[in-house]
Design a protein around this nucleic acid. Structure first.
Lengths: 187, 187
DNA sequence: GTCTATACACCGATAGAC
DNA sequence: GTCTATCGGTGTATAGAC
């Protein structure tokens, strides 16, 4: 495989994301972001000339790539639809890692971040929903029911993530994912 | 009824809440909060001597009172449990008002706000969950099922609120509340 | 590509007049 | 109880040496 530069944008985005996840766009300061990367504020501007907005965009791009890999790709195969849905939900548990899982797209929806990133986030959520719908349809669930199930799955996962922040644990998410698997409307 | 002072703490909390809801604790600046109340920053400190933290606490107290009135009180009557649950869900729709509904307790769970307010928020969520459980139990739903239904209802409502911020509309919340009413596990 | 030093606006908070 | 004026600190962002 190609040897990557020691400091890739992807590598930086990986370190920036947790700050945006925990503090939101307004709450994430350049001092925090610099500390998280191990660079100075000035060096961050070398990599992200347009400043904090650029950094959040790269964090979002990184989140989108992980969404694709861990959640959407498993949905798209040609295996048994039940296996695909279960694999995607398992991937969802890995996507939302950490002792207190956070959703970057949720955190960026407050304050100034909503103005800047709502379109991009809506696109990602739509892709997620359509991926779920497709797998549900493949399993024989009728169109309208597949639609409402896909919506409900994302709704419950996002709600569980809120409850994780309330309780300070991963437990609501794990319980939710288990419940979703057992309630899948499949034959 | 007693004549209230022209500027009550409750009246101020009502004006402060939308700012904390939309921007979170870190993102809400004193300039915004002053503008929202029509007071100067110095006057805000007269009413809330400990500054922004005090203001957020009063906003939380105001939210707690509204939760009690619109969501919890309807659950606690002696009417038919189905009527109580439906009344509470209708109250939930009013509690989360506005063109893009926001949840103060959710918004305060980011950044510094989580450190300061997580305990208080967890207490409110627990009360909500127990109120739902009690009404479900009264309707004959078994303990374990009442517990998981109460959890799922809050989870879905919170998730729907996230999707409202994604789409910029009330529609996910309204759809969720309608679905919950029609799916209530009652006789 | 990294850094130190710095610019200037805004932050939360306070002093003190009215 | 409200205000203007101001404090010290931090915010984002830039200049320029190495």
């Amino acid at each position: 495989m190609a040897r990557p530069a020691r400091l890739t944008k992807t590598g930086l985005a990986e370190k920036l994301s947790p700050v945006f996840e925990r503090y939101g766009y307004d709450g994430a300061s350049l001092s925090m972001l610099a500390a998280a990367t191990g660079l100075s504020k000035a060096s961050l501007y070398h990599h992200f000339p347009r400043g904090k907005e650029d950094m959040a965009l790269y964090a979002l791009a990184h989140a989108g790539a992980r969404l694709q890999k861990l959640i959407l790709a498993p949905l798209a195969g040609k295996d048994d639809p039940r296996d695909r849905l279960e694999a995607s939900l398992a991937g969802t548990g890995r996507y939302y890692g950490g002792d207190i899982p956070h959703c970057l797209m949720n955190s960026l929806l407050l304050g100034e971040g909503r103005v800047l990133f709502a379109d991009r986030i809506a696109t990602a959520v739509t892709a997620w929903r359509q991926g779920l719908m497709a797998a549900l349809s493949d399993s024989g669930v009728l169109g309208a029911e597949a639609d409402s199930w896909a919506r409900e799955m994302i709704e419950r996962i996002q709600g569980a993530l809120v409850l994780c922040r309330v309780s300070g644990t991963r437990e609501p998410l794990e319980t939710c994912l288990d419940a979703l698997i057992s309630e899948l409307p499949l034959s």
